[in-house]
Design a protein around this nucleic acid. Sequence first.
RNA 1: GCGGGCGUGGCGGAAUUGGUAGACGCGCCGGCCUUAGGAGCCGGUGGGCCCAGGCCCUUGGGGGUUCAAGUCCCUCCGCCCGCACCA
Length: 821
Amino acid sequence: MTERRYDPKTIEPKWQEIWARERTWEVSNEPDEREKSYVLEMLPYPSGEPHIGHLKNYALGDAIAHFHRRTGCRVLHPMGYDAFGLPAENNAIITGVHPREATNRSIAAYRHWFHRWGISIDWSREFATHEPTYYRWTQWIFLRMLERGLAYRKEAAVKWCPHDATVLANEQVIDGHCERCGALVEVRQLEQWFFRITDYADRLLDDLDGIDWPEYVKTMQRNWIGRSKGAEVAFRCEELGIDYPVFTTRPDTLFGATFFVMAPEHPDVFRLVAGTEHEYAAHEYVNRSLNESVQERGDAEKPKTGVALGRTVTNPVNGEQIPMYVSDYVLMEYGTGAIMAVPAHDERDFSFAQAFGLPIRRVVGTDEALPYTGDGPMIHSSPRFDGMHNRDAYEAIVAWLDVEAKGHPSVSYRLRDWLLSRQRYWGCPIPIVYCEGCGIVPVPDEDLPVELPEIEDYHPKGRSPLATAEDWVNTTCPSCGGPARRETDTMDTFVDSSWYFLRYCDARNDEAAWDPEVLSRWMPVDQYIGGVEHAILHLMYARFFVKALADMGLVDVQEPFKALFTQGMIIGADGNKMSSSKGNVVAPASIVDRYGADAARGYVLFIGPPDQDAAWSDTGVDGVERFLARLWRLGDGFAHDTAGLEPAAPAPAEQPPEPEGAALTLVRKANWAIEKVTGDMTGRFAFNTAIAAIMELVNEVYRHPDADPAARRFATATAASLVFPFAPHLGAEVYEMLTGRRVWEEPWPAADQTMLRAETFMLVCQINGKVRDRVEASTGAPRDELEQLCLEAPNVRARLDGQEVVKVIVVPDKLVNVVVR
RNA sequence: GCGGGCGUGGCGGAAUUGGUAGACGCGCCGGCCUUAGGAGCCGGUGGGCCCAGGCCCUUGGGGGUUCAAGUCCCUCCGCCCGCACCA
């Protein structure tokens, strides 16, 4: 005879088969009386097999999805794959395996594991972004952007990653290094495709106020957008008769401007020095600057460099002639590419002035050392402004310039347009052809998708590998029918993931990207869950897409993700980030094989607050597995009469009427657990304490083996019901053993409020804030009765002897504090 | 440098509104059961004193507010994250 024991290897496949066969988690697009809930985890980039972070991500989302279902929502919980991308392509260069093949293999592995983890996914909506049936619509959206002028082509100084041999968006450059591969990024002057995300800067900034996101993520986006209010002021070069506008956030310091600086990329630098003695030095300096890496150029610690242009401009507020310089600390992409320099009140201008021996004139009068960037009264700024507070002078000077037509209020942003083209193969083709006669011609909608051709050699050679597919590149112009060439760059993969959550709503629509009517039934995503690493990139691009699509009338929400939850990382047991080089990687496969999916899921949720990083611990999984086994044995005890408790036939496990003694204790504990778990899951995601509460309930049942079986059944069934969102297979199994019913079809339990309050409680008796005794008191007793009980408590009375009672504080149903002198 | 977060037993963590610090889990100690235990069950477990009834100390350090502080305020230290020539 084999021993009966908790065996996830039989339980888990049993329920997984039922859920797959019955398509339990599929949800219709038809509205019903239930409230909708769209729960979404960031879609995975399929590479090899899922790692422990994926397990946590999807265990979190699944717990929320289950909870929403059982609290009466119709829940959309879909899955897909972010399937284009460089790792598969780089791998293809080495191994020769087609990126599609490698990607599809990874997708199969991910799909397999999501099933094995028992994640409640609506599989009828599954897709991958590299499928032509998906990227057809990515291209379609690109064309809509083009029509509205939101996609455009321009030549600009762009960031180039020499290792990945492609251009990058600003967001993908971290401290001058490629966000993906870490290579030092260079600057190149190239013609590229951009999305006009800067048109949406104000809305992207302002709408952050209305969404339920972690404050620090919003702060990161605000910093990234970097809106600065200031003024644009024109400085005239009389010799050439040209006005050079500058942007400044400190128009109040205009009287302190003692020189003027242009960016090396400024188109007028060469013109200003042409034919002068400064020409050679300026050219040399500009060329040197352009060859600097992004990191060198951006280093604020580096001593200031530059050369004089031998020209002057007129300061519009006082008519002073101030010398012009070119220096690499001025950026062409920001403001106007030229600045007025106020060394007394700007650290950068100060160090430049020191390096070049230029005059420094204080215009905000304080005792503070220069450079001083704070506030104070105006000085040396003409009788008109001297003595004014600099903030008032700010307004007054801008108003005056406006009247004089020498300047006007202005706003600048740090945000740049999104560079979306990539010189790589494994991405969504840009649906454009170049015709000698017609120029840039969009591929008509009916010709979509422009499919990615097969090629022999994936090596990037400074241009897209697609350029080698001659048959594909050479085409005819959709407009004039003449010979034309296809765009050979592909799209940044962040384009693919900027709208995937829309496609889930209507994933099988082959007439349109989606039906706006259907979309409105699901959007926005009610709860989005993912890692912080996308705080700026994906999360801002997706917001931009939704706003642009909303302006086209295709989407009726302004924000894609109503609430965002950022999960913490699981780090190695040694406290380091998991990496194969450190040998501290925990593969979900090995954990699931050994402990089962429920224990693995339960542990990643129990490990600590889900938004915090937590170190993996093998013994920690043991603990969760023990807990699940204890719960299972309770269920098994009822189902198989192994403990002589009850006939085997399942029956409803309802709360017994009027329980007493140990039965009452169990019923109370069960209701307490319902209240606790429900509270931990609404508004907050305290899954760790929710699981702890269920552990307490199970412990309580073990502690009362002789209690009324009905009460034990009720408590056990409650534990199974509550544990279901975290350990769905075991929850379903135990619930079935007890009741013969399917736990996911049961409503979420509601606590019996009458069972939450005991008749008595332990009154804490304090003297001067120190606990001296505890006595039993009845719940709801009046203040004076509690005070009396406390004063009579043995340890209180003994200590009060001969002391003067100054005051007595009573906190009803909790404590009494006697203040003595 | 600027902005944000964090600091609680041997370890992960709990304390939701200022009201019993250390829930729950790990680890460790003891007991039961057992031919056996790397299974299961029960109990103990912050530190120090101890006449065994209790007493003192304890939430990174110091100071403060309060009848009462892990929680609020000031200050210092440490760790983590973000930003950092954006005029």
